[in-house]
Design a protein around this nucleic acid. Sequence first.
DNA 1: ACAAAATTTTACCATATGGTCAAAGATTAC
DNA 2: GTAATCTTTGACCATATGGTAAAATTTTGT
Lengths: 220, 220
Amino acid sequence: MTAPKTASPSKSRSQATRKRTRIQREKQDLILEAALDVFSSHGFRGATIDQIADKAGLSKPNLLYYFRTKEAIHRQLIDRLLDNWLEPLRKIDPNGDPLSEIQSYIRRKLELARDFPRESRLFANEILQGAPRIREELHDLRDLVDEKSKIIASWTRDGRIAPCDPKHLFFSIWAITQHYADFDAQIRVVLGRAGEGEGRFEDAARFLDQLYVSGLRPQT
Amino acid sequence: MTAPKTASPSKSRSQATRKRTRIQREKQDLILEAALDVFSSHGFRGATIDQIADKAGLSKPNLLYYFRTKEAIHRQLIDRLLDNWLEPLRKIDPNGDPLSEIQSYIRRKLELARDFPRESRLFANEILQGAPRIREELHDLRDLVDEKSKIIASWTRDGRIAPCDPKHLFFSIWAITQHYADFDAQIRVVLGRAGEGEGRFEDAARFLDQLYVSGLRPQT
DNA sequence: ACAAAATTTTACCATATGGTCAAAGATTAC
DNA sequence: GTAATCTTTGACCATATGGTAAAATTTTGT
């Protein structure tokens, strides 16, 4: 009985029920791109709407025409992020070879850190501050981890990988791979000249292959 | 020819050259304690002087009597932090048994994450945002890492641990151990009931012992 | 072409925030 | 005890910031 999906006579505030126009799509993407930059390097509170608007080349009120609040921008970034972020975990195949599955998982996570460092930092900022804005989404993560942990546990039971706590295994993989995005500033300083290209990701991949493959190979 | 160390007739602003009074020591500690809380959970820009003053039970101008600026408080926290933070790394003994040295290093770092999570998050916040306020201190870290990397490399050369890139080995250890402090919010959600006590640190220690000892034991 | 809708701009506003100042109140040294 | 010094407070200030209102401009559907 309330207004049907597409028939209401416009809401003035764009992101209402109606279909998005071309300009809306373009500008919203532009804003999200700029916001990702700003949020990921200053955190939620440290980021200002003016900064985002500047970077997007819009006036502040114009930006606020597309997103009602600063929090709305942040929300949307987080939502988009989590999907991609969990993809590698979803891909772990219960029927694959255990060590290669884990190795591939590490590779994929490392590629995400290399190709989407801002997203990684956005997420890290959020968790660091106690995850105030993403409690619910974390519960989806928990369910997924529970599911995948069972796979790891079964591999352990079958003697196909060394016994280990599946959740801590995941924690360690997240920690290390994301470290290359989140702590990039530190890593570059420590590596000096060697940290300049993207070679550090290949070195990391090599190191991690060795660590996890030897570390998890079942002891005979 | 300029004023000698302790003879100048007072500077009004306390932290000048003169000897600190009892009250100064007490209040400054109080402020730093409160500031650690606030900075570590909101980042530098997210933290406000009012918040810190409230938590310390002082008025804002009173707080600013002890530290001239917000940045001065932050600086001092960072300075205090880095010393303790690097201690475990300094303790790595070139003459010890390689695998036990690494194992002990991991243990000590994990204990720091358990006992000083706020310090870990303070540091993480800083690096995440590009380390704008601690560029110099990071160079000390680099020197120390260079030194300790040589030790690891020599162990590798002598066949006492598996060949590996020493710096990436350190990165992985920092990442994982600090993860338990920095990503605590996420870890608690994923572990559910099991994440409530401090048992997760023992589980982590067990997991990491296995991973690194098997992963780094020289292949025969 | 032109009306309706969507977009952009200009001018604001209320509040938060980092920081200052001068005077009042406590301590300390002698 | 009292002068000199240190500490605390209350009243401020300039700027930054999230957000709004309404008019002006542009785009779109026909």
